[in-house]
């Protein structure tokens, strides 16, 4: 009975420790993102600016995801476990914040938080940032898990995963028909959802590819690269198949709005639901993002969930 209560009290104490760690995160966020100082230090009213609420919760949920990957091992000594936790916590804070800074520099270099969130209340921008925070959180959590508590492993897994995520984010302009910067300035929601799908999908692929034993760095990097290459080969199959099976018609007109092509679409499409790429509907964004995200999810099944076992025997 004593043991049960003791364990319960320990859990409550560790919960408060986590809260304290979140408190420390809030201040480390201010150090690395000074522009956030004004909203992090004063009272926050979520209903005033939904874009700001979404932006903030992206960060918080990202931290929450990362913390869910940490462990308290109090088998030997409770104090040691606390110290180890705080050291890990500081390292992951820094990694998380640096990752956000780098990824936003890659994707949102034309945009500024105070302009888009505070002044313009741009929900599209908020959704993009929210998704990026979640993705970074998931990837760092995976890196922590693969590193198995070894900080040196984490310090090479993190840049590797960040590079892969950065490349994935940059491929949006090649994979999607939606002009990113133009539509984000116009607060277009289709763009937000499309981009979210295009970054969540590769995140899943990167996470499943990273689930390997780290025997040696070179071998590990090679294995990850091979899995990602395999994913790139399998992904188009699902992209095409999903569109074919569910009879999805890409009804987006090209950006230059060529009248000949427009006439062709009008003639051939009985529903005549062609959408202009300068103002795509929410449905189109959901379609683009959803198709890509689903395809990536299914691709991760093919790359990691097929167990060959002794199908090809070893001699």
């Amino acid at each position: 009975m004593n043991e049960i209560f003791d364990k319960l009290l320990l859990r409550i104490f560790i919960a408060f420790t986590l809260c304290f760690a979140l408190f420390l995160y809030k201040f480390s966020h201010i150090l690395l993102h000074p522009s956030a100082k004004q909203y992090l230090l004063k009272k926050f009213y979520p209903s005033q600016n939904p874009a700001d609420t979404l932006y903030l919760f992206g960060r918080i949920i990202g931290v929450g995801i990362i913390f869910s990957g940490l462990y308290f091992n109090i088998e030997n000594n409770f104090l040691h476990a606390l110290v180890v936790f705080f050291i890990q916590g500081i390292v992951v804070f820094v990694i998380y914040l640096v990752s956000i800074y780098i990824l936003e520099s890659i994707t949102l270099y034309n945009f500024d938080y105070s302009d888009e969130i505070i002044r313009r209340k741009n929900m599209s921008y908020a959704i993009v940032v929210f998704t990026e925070s979640i993705c970074i959180g998931i990837i760092i959590k995976t890196a922590i898990s693969v590193a198995n508590g070894v900080l040196t492993n984490l310090l090479f897994l993190w840049p590797l995963s960040l590079v892969l995520l950065g490349i994935s984010a940059k491929t949006f302009n090649y994979l999607s028909k939606l002009p990113f910067n133009k539509l984000l300035i116009r607060k277009n929601m289709a763009l937000a959802f499309s981009f979210s799908g295009h970054i969540l999908g590769p995140t899943m692929i990167i996470v499943t590819s990273m689930q390997e034993q780290v025997a040696s760095i070179e071998n590990y990097v090679f294995q990850v690269f091979l899995k990602i290459l395999l994913s790139i080969i399998i992904l188009p199959i699902f992209l095409k198949a999903l569109k074919y099976i569910f009879r999805m018609h890409d009804d987006l007109l090209p950006e230059d709005n060529n009248p000949n092509i427009k006439a062709y679409h009008n003639f051939n499409d009985e529903n005549n639901t062609n959408v202009d790429s300068n103002s795509p509907s929410l449905g189109y964004g959901l379609y683009e993002g959803g198709i890509f995200f689903t395809s990536c999810f299914l691709t991760s099944v093919i790359t990691t969930h097929i167990l060959f076992g002794n199908f090809y025997p070893n001699f």
Binding site: F222, Q223, F225, L226, L229, L230, I232, I233
Partner: peptide, 13 residues
């Protein structure tokens, strides 16, 4: 090209 690259790299591994 991607398929050939994958097969080639897998063969070496």
């Amino acid at each position: 090209l991607l398929v050939l690259l994958y097969v080639g790299l897998s063969k070496n591994t």
